[in-house]
Amino acid sequence: MAARSERLEWGGGGLHWLARLFDYKPFLIFMCLLPAVGLLVVFLTYPLGLGVWLAFTDARIGREGEFIGLLNYELLFGDRIFWMSVGNTILYTVVATAGKFILGLWLALLLNRHLPFKSFLRAIILVPWIVPTVLSAIAFWWIYDAQFSVLSYLLVDVLGWRDTYINFLGDAWNARWSLIAANIWRGIPFVAISLLAGLQTISPSLYEAALLDGATPWQRFRYITFPMILPILAVVLTFSVLFTFTDFQLVYAITRGGPVNATHLMATLAFQRAIPGGQLGEGSAIAVAMIPFLVFATVFSYFALARRKWQQGESNE
C-alpha cells in the first residue's frame, strides 16, 4: 500500500489518471497484447484477407481486379489440372505424413535407448531438418537426375541389377513417389525429435511395473508408450500435416510441377498461375481452396487424438 501511494505521488497530479489506467488490469492486458495482435494482423490477417478478396476478383499482375463473384472457382471446378493438383496434394500429404510418422516414431524409439554417442547421434539426425529446403531439393534433383543419378549409377553400372537408368522424374508415378520420398527424408527429424522429447517424459517406473507383471515389449509399447505420447503425437501430427500440405519449395525446385503437371501441388499451381502466369485472381482462388483442407486436417488430428480428458487434468477412464 505504501509503495502504491508513493508511486502515485511520484507521477505527479497530471499523471494520476494515467497511472490508474495502467493499474487497471483489463487495460494492461490489452496493452500487453497489442504488439502481438498488431504483428498478427499486419503479417497474417491482412495477407490472408487480401488473398481471399483477390480470389473473388479478376486481378492480374499490373491491373487492379474487379469483383467477379465465384467465377474463379467455377473455372477451377472445370479445370482438370486443378483437380489433379488436389489429388496430388492429398496423396502427397497422406503418404508422406504416414511415412514420416512410422519412421520418425521408430527412430525416436531407437534413440530413446542407451546407445553409444547418444548425444552426437541425436544431433546428427537433425541435419535434414536444418538444411535449407532448396539445398536439399538440389541434392535430390541430382539424385533423381535422368543421366547422372547416383542411384541409377549404383544399380546399373556398379551392381548390374538393371539395364536402364531409372526414369525418376520423367514418369508420372515415379516422379510422385520420388518427391514423397524426398519429403519424408526431410520431415523425419522433426517428428523423431519431438516424439523423443515425449518419450523421455515417461517415468521409468511404469516400465518397471510392467516388466514385473510380465508384459511383452509390444504390450509395453501398446499400453504405456503409445498412450503416454499420444498428446504430443497429436500436436506433431497437426504440424506435420500443415507443413506437408503447404509444401512448395521441394516440388518447385525438383520438377516444377512436371512431367506434364503430374506433380503439381495446389501450392505450386497457385504460384505458377499467379506469378509467372500473371493471373493473380485465379492463383489466389487455388490458394484459398487449400484452406478448407487445412482446417479439416487440423480439426481432425486435434479432436481425434488430443481431446482426452486427462489432458485437462482428469483421469482417463
Partner: peptide
C-alpha cells in the same frame, strides 16, 4: 531422344551435352 528428357529443366541438356551423353 536419350531417355528421361520429359523431366529435363533448362540446365539438363547443357550437362548431358558437356558430359558427352
Amino acid at each position: 531422344f536419350i531417355p528421361g528428357t520429359e523431366s529435363w529443366l533448362d540446365a539438363n541438356n547443357n550437362k548431358a551435352f558437356l558430359s558427352e551423353q
